[in-house]
């Protein structure tokens, strides 16, 4: 069936409902290009492995007494990876995809490391990526809840009080031009010195990163009802409280969810960065740091991929809640 067949055409609905057909059509429109782009990226990754790992591959070959093009090691060290790969194509390609501690591990190596980290260890072991992901995720979620709560409270204040609007809003904007990450190490050390440690300092950094999108989105959302709607409620004699709960709050939901999705991604970044400066022993950030200290590139890439999956899962979960909630409220799904 071609893309242009109308859903109502004779026989178009046979075997599947219109909803499924729509979904399939949408998937075909989006899926093929997306898969193509992803496939090109992976192919590029494999290709890039050859020059990136050429130095190490050629050196190994030289140690194993295989003839390589510039014979002296000093000369080889001077050359770039691409030039080396071009002069020793066979050796470079043969050694590109299976090295330990490769400069750029091949995708299948990363996938293997990820698989062994997720499925190969018991969940409580500190070599398990599930365990590290949970440590990071718990801080992310706690910080996200703090940040969202603070953001919504500030937004309600800003919408209802002109003083707060004029005095707080500019500083909320300035606060985001400050690279807050810079404060992360200090927050952790200072809180540690007063006896607070573990999840809370990371959550505070997460909260700081996630509150701003929520403030901006919520202010926009709470102000989104137009004058006609507000007038209608005032003709009903509605109090400010009723206007808030029956008009402003429901009207702000689409804006809130758009902000929440940005907020949770920011909050995950905050939790990961929060693990970097103190040399935390658990969490995806700690895995990144340990990997970079010991040159375990596969471990870094696996932690990175795990963080990716985590971010996608969080955003996806929020999207699902959004669809259900807005659907129930009779808004566009």
């Amino acid at each position: 069936m071609s893309d242009t067949t109308p859903l109502a055409a004779q026989g178009a609905g046979i075997g599947r409902s219109g909803r499924v057909a729509l979904w399939a059509r949408g998937m075909r429109r989006a899926l093929v290009p997306v898969l193509t782009v992803v496939a090109v990226l992976v192919a590029f990754w494999y290709l890039a492995c050859i020059p990136m790992n050429a130095g190490a591959a050629v050196q190994q070959a030289a140690r194993a007494d295989i003839a390589v093009s510039p014979e002296s090691a000093a000369e080889r060290r001077q050359m770039g990876g691409l030039a080396l790969a071009l002069r020793n194509p066979g050796v470079a390609v043969a050694g590109a995809f299976g090295q330990e501690r490769a400069r750029l591990p091949a995708p299948h190596q990363v996938a293997a490391e990820l698989w062994s980290g997720v499925a190969g260890q018991s969940v409580t072991s500190n070599r398990s990526l599930v365990y590290h992901a949970w440590v990071t995720l718990s801080a992310t979620l706690l910080g996200f809840v703090f940040g969202t709560g603070l953001g919504i409270a500030l937004a309600v204040g800003i919408v209802h009080s002109r003083v707060m609007d004029m005095s707080v809003m500019p500083w909320a904007i300035v606060s985001q031009t400050v690279p807050i990450i810079a404060i992360a190490p200090m927050i952790i050390v200072v809180l540690y010195s007063v006896g607070i440690q573990g999840i809370v300092p990371k959550a505070i950094i997460s909260a700081y990163l996630s509150f701003f999108p929520v403030v901006v989105g919520m202010v926009k959302g709470l102000r989104s009802p137009d004058a006609m709607q507000l007038d209608l409620l005032s003709t009903y004699g509605a109090s400010a409280r009723q206007v808030f709960f029956k008009l402003r709050l429901p009207a702000s939901m689409p804006y809130l969810f758009a902000s929440l999705k940005i907020g949770i991604a920011a909050s995950l970044v905050g939790a990961i960065v929060g693990e970097l400066p103190t040399g935390a022993s658990a969490g995806l950030g700690a895995r990144l740091l340990a990997g970079s200290y010991y040159g375990q590139t596969e471990q870094i890439w696996a932690a990175l991929l795990a963080a990716t999956v985590l971010a996608a899962a969080c955003v996806g979960a929020l999207g699902a809640v959004e669809r259900v909630l807005l659907g129930r409220m009779g808004m566009r799904t």
């Binding site: 940005i262 960065v273 990144l288 971010a311």
Partner: peptide, 11 residues
């Protein structure tokens, strides 16, 4: 754009 790209820093 939604990913924790800062994680690529060590690499």
């Amino acid at each position: 754009a939604a990913l924790p790209i800062v994680g690529t820093a060590p690499i």
